[in-house]
C-alpha cells in the first residue's frame, strides 16, 4: 500500500513500482541459483537477477512441488550484487510474497514456474509496497494481472525448454490483441473487454497508448543471442533468460552475448559477432513432446 510519512513523501506508489521496470528496459534479467551465478550475471551486464533455488529446466526434470526459495539464499544473492534482485513466489501465495517483501527483494515474480498455491485467484498486489511482475499468454491475461496490481508484465513462453516458440506465440498474441483495439468505438471496446475478460478502462488505455500500460518483457525458452533479438524485434521491452545461460557450456560468454544481442537487436552484424564460438546451447525440448500436465504456461488464469 502506498505509505505516506509526515513529510509528504510516499513509498510504494504505482508510479514508483512501474518506474523501476522502466529503468530495466532494453536489458536482460537472468535466473541465478547461487551468489557466484549472480556475480557472473552482473559482470555479464544483466540489469537484474532472479534469485531461485532451481532453474526451470531442473524444476522440470526433478518434479515435486516448487516453492519460494530459502530466505538465506535470497539474502546471500542480495549481498553479492548491486543490481536489483527479484524472486519468485507461487501464484496466489500472498504469504510467500510478504516474506519476499520483508527480505527486501526489488521485484516479486508471481510465477507459473513454481507450483500454484491457488488455482482460482492470483495475489491482490495493490496492498504491497514491493512491485510485482506476472506472466501472460495474451492481452486479456496481461490486463487481468495489471488490474490486480502488477507493475510489469512478461510473456510466459514455456520455461525450462530452451525453445523460443511459445515466447513468440505469446508476444505475438499480446501484439495482436492491442492492434485489434485500434479503431474500436466505446461500445465495441466494452464487448472486447468482455470477450477477453479484462477491465474496459485498461483496454482504453492500451488503445490510447498502442501498447501495454506497463513494461513488458519476454520470458520462457530464450536460449541464444538471436532468440533474444527476435523477441526484442517482436516489440518486447527486454528479456528474461532462465535456464538458457547456466545450462549452456560457457555461461559468461553466452550471457554477455545475449546482453549484446538484446541491446543491438536490429544489428545482425553485432549479433553475428556475439554469437561466434559460444559453445553448446542448452539442449532444448520440443513442446508437443511434453505431457500436458508439464506445460507451465497453462498455470495462471
Amino acid at each position: 500500500m502506498a505509505e505516506r510519512n509526515g513529510s509528504g513523501s510516499q513509498k510504494g506508489t504505482f508510479k514508483v513500482k512501474a518506474g523501476l521496470a522502466e529503468m530495466l528496459k532494453g536489458g536482460v534479467i537472468m535466473d541465478v541459483v547461487t551468489p557466484e551465478h549472480a556475480r557472473l550475471a552482473q559482470d555479464a551486464g544483466a540489469c537484474a537477477v532472479m534469485a531461485l533455488e532451481r532453474v526451470p529446466a531442473d524444476i522440470r526434470k526433478e518434479g515435486g512441488v516448487a516453492r519460494m526459495s530459502d530466505p538465506s539464499l535470497i539474502k546471500a544473492i542480495e549481498a553479492a550484487v548491486t543490481i536489483p534482485v527479484m524472486a519468485k513466489c507461487r501464484i496466489g501465495h500472498f504469504v510467500e510474497a510478504r516474506v519476499l517483501e520483508e527480505l527486501g527483494v526489488d521485484y516479486i515474480d508471481e510465477s507459473e514456474v513454481l507450483t500454484p498455491a491457488d488455482e482460482e485467484n492470483h495475489i491482490d498486489k495493490w496492498p504491497f509496497k514491493v512491485p510485482f511482475v506476472c506472466g501472460c499468454r495474451d492481452l486479456g491475461e496481461a490486463l487481468r494481472r495489471i488490474a490486480e496490481g502488477a507493475a510489469m508484465i512478461r510473456t510466459k513462453g514455456e520455461a525450462g525448454t530452451g525453445n523460443v516458440v511459445e515466447a513468440v506465440r505469446h508476444a505475438r498474441a499480446v501484439n495482436a490483441g492491442i492492434r485489434k483495439l485500434q479503431g474500436l468505438n466505446r461500445a465495441e471496446l466494452v464487448q472486447e473487454a468482455k470477450r477477453i475478460g479484462a477491465p474496459v478502462d485498461l483496454l482504453e488505455e492500451c488503445q490510447k497508448l498502442g501498447r501495454l500500460p506497463v513494461v513488458n518483457f519476454a520470458a520462457g525458452g530464450i536460449a541464444t543471442p538471436a532468440d533474444a533479438a527476435l523477441m526484442m524485434q517482436l516489440g518486447v521491452d527486454g528479456v528474461f533468460v532462465g535456464s538458457g545461460i547456466f545450462k549452456s557450456e560457457d555461461p559468461l560468454r553466452r550471457a554477455k552475448a545475449i546482453v549484446a544481442a538484446t541491446t543491438y537487436h536490429d544489428r545482425p552484424d553485432i549479433i553475428a559477432e556475439a554469437s561466434e564460438g559460444l559453445g553448446e546451447a542448452m539442449r532444448g525440448l520440443e513442446i508437443p513432446a511434453l505431457p500436458e500436465d508439464q506445460l507451465l504456461a497453462q498455470r495462471g488464469w
Binding site: 508510479k15 514508483v16 529503468m23 526489488d106 509496497k129
Partner: peptide
Amino acid sequence: GRQVDSFEADLELAGDERPFPGVFIR
C-alpha cells in the same frame, strides 16, 4: 535503500515557487 524505499515527493526548484513532483527509484 532498496526498491521498497523508493518514493514520490514534492521538491523545491531554485527560482520556481511551484513544487515539482519528484519520483525517486533506488
